[in-house]
Design a protein around this nucleic acid. Structure first.
Lengths: 198, 198
DNA sequence: GTCTATACAAAGATAGAC
DNA sequence: GTCTATCTTTGTATAGAC
């Protein structure tokens, strides 16, 4: 029956949007409060402090990314396509949510040299999700032995796409280019260690 | 005869070090002044404001990167090695200067959603230098027509290496991995459009 | 849970003397 | 050119009422 978002949700929305588009350090608590139309006390009651709010907003965004990516994997037909679905997911993710200037997680990591434990964990969870899932998907394609190598390479290329967006590159062009390079890496590793059958 | 660095140089050193290791937004003017052992008025007399100082420090660092990279290119034997020398240069650069947490230019870009014109130009100059020089080096290897494509791909991979450092990856490992992927891209593009002779 | 009002610290930048 | 001292704004966070 909740027709109106709660103050808590409005805070998370505002924090996510501003972190994604402006960055966390330049975004003041006041700016978040203004956008969420919420009073200071409410923020601190729910999240303790600014970093707590940011951490919670990132957790929520990571969960949504997780879902979107998994859907793209499920939609893909072949094992190779599933491995490259991370690039499709990037496009879909950016269309579904407030598109970040490049990547909210890397952005917050770049801006926060000394994160608290919870924030640190949340940021690391993004990288863990990428490496872990790509390794799982790479196993059936190039074998368990080569899977970690291929996963690292695809994460590197994926991260490069995000960086190119920060450099001002066209998002779709950079994504397509990343996918091409990842496909090269896939076939190179696959050639070295022939694909596991079925 | 200048045995002591000037106040101006101490300011540039302090700004560069703190921007590289901590980030620009979290670094206060006071912190820069403390480290440089300089008074506020001196900073503003020389650079106008904080962004002016940061811009100047970045310009100086870009010039040093330019030099280091060119030296690595000159040291390389083959045309292919010259094209991949950007990864060697990255290692050498990071050993020569205060190593940034990942990349000072991308870091400042990520932290500054609305840069002034001078800062904007300086940040863009980094990307321009990368794309332009790599395209020049790619021409003799894959031909002028394919050179822009290969240059973009290598910049993407190079940027991915920097992003992996931000993700916590080992610097040498990420650099080596990036070089391998760039070599794949080189050979793939080269195979599509056979190398120009000489 | 949420608000109004405010405390307190830190930020960037400037004035005026030497 | 450089310093000491200070001004003003903005920042995060809390107190106390409803």
């Amino acid at each position: 029956m909740a027709s109106q978002p709660t103050a808590r949700d409005r805070l998370l929305d505002a924090a996510e949007d501003l972190a994604a588009t402006q960055g966390v350090n330049i975004t003041s608590v006041d700016a978040i409060l203004d956008r969420a139309r919420v009073s200071p006390a409410t923020l601190y009651a729910h999240f303790g402090n600014k970093e707590g709010l940011i951490t919670e907003a990132l957790r929520r965004r990571l969960a949504r990314w997780d879902t979107t990516w998994q859907e793209c994997i499920d939609d893909a037909d072949s094992r190779e396509e599933k491995l490259l679905a991370v690039f499709t997911a990037l496009s879909r993710h950016r269309r579904a949510l407030t598109p970040s200037r490049w990547c909210v997680f890397l952005g917050v990591a770049a801006e926060t040299p000394h994160p608290g434990r919870d924030l640190q964990d949340t940021l690391a969870a993004d990288t863990r999700l990428l490496l872990g899932r790509l390794e799982d998907l790479a196993g059936p394609v190039v074998g368990a032995e080569q899977a970690p190598l291929l996963a690292r390479r695809i994460v590197l290329v994926y991260t490069g796409v995000l960086g190119m967006i920060l450099r001002g590159a066209d998002v779709d062009a950079a994504t397509a280019e990343g996918r091409s390079i990842a496909a090269l890496a896939l076939h190179a590793v696959g050639a070295a260690a022939p694909a596991v059958r079925r």
